[in-house]
Simulated assay, not measured.
Amino acid sequence: MGRAIRNQAALALAALALALSSASARADPNALWRIVHDECVPHVEAGLGPKPCERVDLTGGVAEGVAILKDLVGLSQMLAIPTRRITGIEDPQMLEPDAPPVFGDAWGARDLVEARLGRALPREAIGLAINSQWARSQDQFHVHVDCVAIPVIKVLAEYASTLDGQWRAMTVPLQGRVYFARRVDSADLSDVAPLKLLADGVEGARAHMGAYSLAAIGATLDGKPDFILLADQFSLEGGGHAEDLQDHDCAIAHSAP
């Protein structure tokens, strides 16, 4: 059996095991979609405001809209959710030219995170994360917006100078996982497509996007605002859950000056 076939078989078995073990926890994998589609968008279209969402941007219409919703988990965690039906990172719609600007809107929601915390945070303390197809609870694309875990901030502060525009495996782990990393020159992610960079830059990723997770961590490189992109692949040993790089208790908000 070839390596590619073995890898696919292992991933399939892992996905099946995860699905069986988490079936009870995923009573309604469409909950986010129902909230955005059935409540937030109709409320905005009727002129009633975005509730229960915090914000809904329909500038490009529902097809390119993005809603920001406070997650039930965490002090300040926000979710950026397309108002179009998109299942997750594996959905090919996210690699099309008309993909909704989820990452840009997600980064724009950091003010909502800071408002919940009652203080501004350094750029490096905010991160975005999307989990793999087999390490998530919802079947509507969503980006987690929240504080970065302090150990991750410390490692990236030392490692950032080694990064460039090419994906490479890091030589040190983050939260026990070895991530692929690269820098991306952007102030707010409105001018780049992180998922396309993953699909085109990591060998085999485009054909198996559902197996990958992706994070974008704020950074200041060469004296200007940038981002560090981090990618990890689901396996039998774990991974594919970039949300692990975040801290939903936001300890950095209590320790940063």
Rank of each mutant, 00 (worst) to 15 (best):
I217D: 04
G223Y: 04
R26C: 01
A160F: 00
G108K: 11
Q133M: 12
K196E: 11
V66D: 02
A157P: 08
G2N: 14
L18R: 15
L32D: 07
G240R: 04
R85E: 13
A67T: 01
A27N: 12
M170Y: 02
G204P: 06
Q246P: 03
Q133P: 01
V62P: 01
D247W: 11
R177Y: 10
I5A: 13
L245A: 07
D57A: 02
M209Q: 08
W167K: 08
D111S: 14
G204N: 03
M209I: 05
G210M: 05
L18M: 09
Q8R: 15
S235H: 05
D71R: 07
D222V: 04
A207C: 03
A135K: 09
C53R: 02
K224I: 13
Q8P: 00
S137Q: 08
A157D: 14
F180W: 15
A193D: 11
M78P: 01
A31F: 12
G165N: 14
E96I: 00
G60N: 04
W33A: 11
L75Q: 12
A199Y: 04
L79M: 14
L163F: 01
W107F: 11
K51T: 12
L117T: 08
N131R: 02
G223H: 07
I252C: 09
A10Y: 10
H142Q: 10
G108Y: 05
E90R: 02
G210R: 02
C40L: 10
Q140P: 03
K154W: 10
S235C: 00
V56M: 04
S21Q: 12
G201E: 06
S24Q: 11
C250L: 05
S22A: 02
R85N: 13
E114H: 07
L198R: 08
R177C: 08
L79Q: 09
A46N: 13
A19Q: 14
G104L: 03
P173T: 11
V148L: 10
D226T: 13
K154T: 13
A187V: 12
Q8I: 11
